[in-house]
């Protein structure tokens, strides 16, 4: 196996697209093609076409085993950290966002809803309290006022979020750095349904994540863990939020901020 730097010109990349779609390129070549696909529409469409063909070749109507599903179900539950059940004794209201963009609000007590929310709550850093003192916030744990937050590059959610930004009844906020750079915009609809749209957001490495916070009723609460390069997020705000803040935390997020805020927006 050679460890020389490999270079591929466009013709070579194009010639490799079929092999790439079948996962049959060498790793270093695949990396080059993957990078190229991010900037070349025609190559990326060609790969999509081949992936669909591969899907057809690999598709069978073999029945799925219910034993395996039970295993999967159990491992979904294992995602839940222990010992923080009490925090969410009061089940949050969940906002449903349909593909037709019609919103419904339900209150759910289902186990899976709670686990998802709890998965957001990971460790409470020991330095967190000190940081919060410096920032002068009164810190509280998540109190159920903010619910489901989902990330997306999905066109459906993007479209809904963009529509919310131009909705005249929405509060539109700009999250700006101290230098005034626009990092993200947030639209809060009267129902509390809100959308975060990343603008000039730089990707952080996998060990880190962006996290969105709010000051609500004088307390700092997490609005959610946004991942390494947030683009579009949907979340629900249910009480008086006076300020939004964005920072970068260890992967998985934390319950109180442990690092400086990189962008803020006042809610007026």
């Amino acid at each position: 196996m050679s460890h020389e730097e490999i270079v591929m010109n466009h013709e070579e990349i194009v010639e490799s697209l079929g092999v790439y779609a079948l996962d049959a390129l060498d790793e270093d070549e695949a990396l080059i093609v993957t990078q190229h696909l991010e900037e070349c529409m025609s190559c990326s469409l060609e790969v999509l076409r081949y992936r669909e063909v591969a899907g057809k070749l690999g598709s069978s109507t073999v029945g799925s085993s219910s034993a395996l599903w039970e295993k999967i179900e159990r491992s979904l539950e294992l995602e839940v950290p222990e010992g923080i059940d009490g925090i969410l004794a009061d089940p949050p209201k969940l906002q449903l966002l349909g593909s037709d963009a019609s919103d419904r609000t339900i209150t759910s007590k289902s186990k899976s809803h709670r686990s998802r929310r709890r998965a957001i709550l990971t460790s409470v850093g020991s330095i967190a309290a000190a940081v919060m003192l410096v920032l002068g916030f009164e810190v509280s744990h998540l109190s159920g006022q903010v619910s489901a937050l989902r990330s997306s590059t999905s066109p459906t959610l993007s479209a809904v979020a963009s529509a919310a930004l131009s909705n005249p009844s929405a509060k539109v906020l700009s999250l700006r750095s101290t230098q005034g750079r626009l990092l993200a915009e947030v639209a809060i609809l009267p129902s509390g349904q809100s959308y975060f749209l990343g603008r000039a957001i730089v990707a952080v490495n996998k060990a880190k994540t962006y996290q969105l916070w709010a000051i609500a009723d004088g307390r700092v609460v997490s609005l959610g863990v946004l991942g390494t390069r947030p683009q579009v997020y949907s979340f629900v705000v249910q009480r008086n939020v006076t300020q939004l803040m964005l920072n970068i935390e260890p992967e998985g997020g934390v319950t109180v901020p442990t690092t400086p805020v990189i962008a803020t927006a006042k809610v007026v």
Binding site: G18, V19, A21
Partner: peptide
Amino acid sequence: KSRIRSGLKRLS
């Protein structure tokens, strides 16, 4: 490489 690509093209 090129046969895989042309084959996939035909299949598509």
